[in-house]
Design a protein around this nucleic acid. Structure first.
Length: 400
DNA sequence: TAAATTATCTTACCCCTGCC
DNA sequence: GGCAGGGGTAAGATAATTTA
């Protein structure tokens, strides 16, 4: 195992066009760093440029199969292999690396995406506001290379196998989500048509609590000059970002015990519906059970319903349908700062099937969730395994 | 008139775009 | 090839308006 610079492993290291493209509905595929996020090229969400622009870029090097595309900004340092025999163009946010014969392209891809290389990239990020990687720095990145192609191929096989298991698990988890969606349609029909003739009423009708952080005494706490944020960790202040990441451990904020005890309505116990009131206004979340004191954050609404009429898990699944997302979005106001008001939320019409049927659906969701939990745990283990394999591989402990 | 509620403003950050 | 600027968004703070 020796360390070789990317510049010596690749015959070409360049980047895409610097010209800002004009997009069209069809024409030639145009990839930017957005299309290379998880170590794979996302061919499903590509943009196109018109033929004239493609012609203009004719002198630029076109990616070919087994080239590596590396994100220079955006998700800096993430690479993907070109796996399609197709003519397309790339933007300046992507670097193009063409491996020489001494290196097996799939091996190089794994090595570039490894945490060890990632650390090297991070050290070399340039720019104060916008972080990016320069080609010069990319060329100097050192890659651990086993002496024979044969051992490179062996490493790739091991890592690919482990990667496949991860992909498979992810696919299974995705299918469970789809299963819940189809069960919903099966029991309740298409909410846009309401062909089963369920009761339709505004969200407000069966609401027991609709509150936000401002309406319950936090003003007094602020006036008393008690710092709300970053105080001794007592109650988690659950913000949109935490809900979005579904991560309530890292990079979170807290309010102190005094402030928490003085909350009347904004204590969060789990199972509630939380809706953003500003920013991505109208976005709906189902609060998980965290087994610790939790407070609502600003800029959110918390909703609790009469459980004899509306089940929160049912409602969350209903509001997450694209039809309901559109209905909620119609209520969002503001061109610059988008907001939704409490009244607007109360007015959103929902179907209210009999509670027994809602509960039947919820039982199903809970069964699926149990399975999903197991699968996610297994996914975590597979990913840990993959990482440790990777470490061993690039330290030369797998094969030499 | 003060509390409750809603709307707006400021700041920081991320990523993309456009210019030198 | 590289950097600066700008748009969009979340978070936090505060102003403005409504309500009891």
């Amino acid at each position: 195992m020796e360390f070789i610079k990317l510049d010596d492993l690749c015959s070409i290291i360049t980047d895409g066009t610097h010209q800002t493209p004009t997009y069209s509905n069809d024409g030639y595929i145009f990839l930017s760093s957005k299309n290379v996020t998880s170590g794979k090229i996302d061919w499903n969400n590509v943009k196109y440029i018109p033929e004239q622009l493609h012609e203009k870029l004719s002198k630029r090097l076109k990616p070919q199969i087994n080239d590596i595309l590396l994100a220079k900004n955006g998700t800096t340092g993430v690479a993907a292999l070109v796996d399609r025999d197709e003519i397309f163009d790339i933007y300046v946010s992507l670097a193009l690396l063409r491996p020489k014969g001494i290196i097996y392209p799939q091996y190089l891809l794994h090595a570039i995406n490894s945490p060890m290389t990632k650390r090297q990239f991070n050290k070399n990020l340039k720019g104060i506001g916008v972080q990016n990687l320069h080609l010069k720095e990319i060329r100097n990145i050192e890659i651990p290379v086993p002496t024979t192609i044969d051992s490179q191929i062996k490493i790739v096989k091991v890592l690919d196998k482990a990667g496949e298991l991860i992909d498979k698990r992810k696919e299974q988890i995705k299918r469970l989500d789809e299963l819940v969606k189809s069960r919903f349609i099966e029991l309740f029909g298409d909410p846009s048509k309401n062909e089963k003739g369920w009761e339709v009423s505004g969200i407000g009708k069966y609401l027991k609590v609709l509150t936000d952080y401002h309406s319950n005494g936090s003003y007094e706490t602020l006036r008393d000059n008690v710092t709300l944020l970053d105080t001794p960790s007592y109650a988690l202040m659950v913000r949109t970002t935490d809900l979005e990441k579904n991560n309530f451990e890292d990079d979170v904020k807290y309010i102190d015990e005094h402030a928490y005890n003085h909350l009347e309505k904004s204590k969060v116990f789990g199972g509630e519906i939380i809706i953003n009131k500003i920013g991505s206004a109208g976005k709906v979340y189902l609060m998980p059970f965290l087994n610790r004191p939790v407070s609502l954050a600003m800029n959110q609404f918390l909703l609790r319903f009469d459980e004899n009429k509306v089940n929160h898990i049912f409602l969350y699944n209903l509001l997450s349908t694209s039809y309901m997302e559109i209905r909620i979005n119609e209520k969002v106001r503001g061109a610059v700062t988008k907001t939704i008001t409490k009244d607007a939320i109360r007015e959103v019409n929902i179907i209210v099937p009999p509670i027994e049927l809602q509960n039947k659906f919820v039982d199903f969701v809970k069964q699926v969730d149990k399975l999903k939990f197991k699968m996610e745990k297994s996914l975590q283990e597979l990913e840990n395994n993959f990482n440790s394999l990777m470490q061993k591989a690039f330290k030369g402990e797998l094969f030499n």
